[in-house]
Design a binder for these strands. Structure first.
Lengths: 249, 249
DNA sequence: ACTAAAACAGCAAATAATTGCAATTCGAAA
DNA sequence: TTTCGAATTGCAATTATTTGCTGTTTTAGT
């Protein structure tokens, strides 16, 4: 493996997780810990990351910005958000799950057109409070501490009573064979109900999450109407998805 | 775990709750108290937080002295919060309205005892996400943009289906003659339902809001069980409230 | 002033970083 | 293709950090 590749991998890991351990890198890259150490030292000198005792962190790790400082991933999400925002039309009733990509979408919401948004996500709801033109209805229930997301019968029940124009699903992993998958079973239940309530289902996903599978299935690809990634719709990476009735955006 | 991660966690906690105890940090981070102490010492040197006996606080945190009559509003709210927190017992089911005083209460929530909290306030819910020992159920509904508070039939309806041990009402104006009053009619409806659902109603109010009246009445003073202010319970300012069956704290 | 809790200082074990050196790889010139 | 030299890599010995523990001193709240 080339040194360049190694260093790119290290940088990617740092950007993705904000911190890495030298031990993990050494194991993942199949090189001695000394080599990794030297790489990190070098990248530190080039100000590409911050070397710390036992590992490395991204710059901005110790700052308290809501966005995760991962420029690569972040910009992908913004591209996706812009595309998704173009689907919004005045008067629509929207349903939004949680996830950072959806949060990015909210940030680029139009300030002119009137919308109604249902959501079980604390973060989404809070962000939407900034928009006087958006009526926000929170789907209440027991909250998951990590995801800040309401789950359980109350949410599913509320969902069964509404019918929305469009659903933006922001998290989850997508695979041609296994469809949309999650690791939390409770969240899957809520998302299933969401899909039931929506006329159109839109998936927002960075390409990293394509061709990945998690434990529980939310739905198969036939249930999805529009798939938005940061890639151009003609990208070959998306080919396996073309055999389904999905609009690529 | 990296030292940097630990320190970031400490800083996050300090910024979120204004203050932290070394013991809590030590337990949460699974390191000895000495390590936490050293971390805090270091962060203190870097002026990232303020080290105090037994813990740390953020810099913006107003300290107050007992003999100094000029007490800041924030400090008043913290005094109230401490008193209110002393009422909490393990296993209780709590109902909390919104308001900055209630938010202050959440920040000093005990980290040991198990609680269940119902709330229609985004801020309260979000803050409670930090407490693994607290189960949080959000009372969903249409959200008020300013107050970040859920109102409407859904909330009232949900409230009619629950019975809680204690209600902490954090906002509103209190007057011996006119009782508890608000300026938002929708909020009044929710608070009325809250009082109905609670075995005990506790009002958290800075003294500034006593002897003040707003447009709509939530309840009269007979509905209130405990009134907590930053004042000593024997303060003459509270005398007019003594003719009601209210415990002053 | 007294007491319990917290802070501190010093020590030792564990872990990480650095340095020097030898073995290997890689690339350009003969 | 071969060969030389520079760069890269792994290893071992040394040095530096980090961390938990000890006993002692200091502090805060009665």
């Amino acid at each position: 493996m080339l040194k360049e590749e190694r260093q790119k991998y290290i940088l990617d890991q740092v950007h993705l997780h904000h911190r890495v351990l030298l031990n993990d890198l050494s194991e993942a890259l199949n090189v001695s810990i000394d080599t990794v150490r030297r790489d990190v030292k070098e990248l530190h000198k080039e100000k590409k990351l911050k070397k710390v005792h036992g590992g490395a962190t991204s710059f901005g790790f110790m700052t308290f910005s809501k966005n995760d400082g991962n420029v690569y991933l972040q910009s992908k999400k913004i591209i996706i958000a812009e595309k998704a925002a173009s689907l919004l039309k005045s008067g629509q009733i929207i349903l939004m799950s949680g996830g950072t990509t959806n949060l990015e979408l909210v940030k680029v919401f139009p300030r002119k057109i009137e919308l109604t948004v249902f959501t079980p996500s604390l973060h989404i709801a809070l962000e939407l409070m900034e928009f006087p033109n958006v009526e926000v209805i929170f789907l209440g229930g027991k909250l998951l501490h990590e995801a800040k997301f309401a789950i359980g019968g109350t949410v599913v029940n509320s969902l069964s009573q509404i019918r929305v124009d469009m659903l933006f699903l922001g998290t989850g992993y997508l695979d041609p064979k296994h469809g949309l998958t999650e690791f939390d079973w409770e969240v899957v239940q809520v998302k299933k109900a969401m899909i039931e309530s929506a006329k159109k289902t839109v998936i927002l996903s960075v390409s990293d999450k394509l061709h990945s599978v998690q434990r529980y299935q939310t739905c198969d690809l036939n249930a999805i109407d529009i798939l938005i990634t940061e890639l151009s719709p003609i990208d070959a990476f998306l080919d396996p998805f073309r055999e389904f009735p999905i609009a690529l955006l």
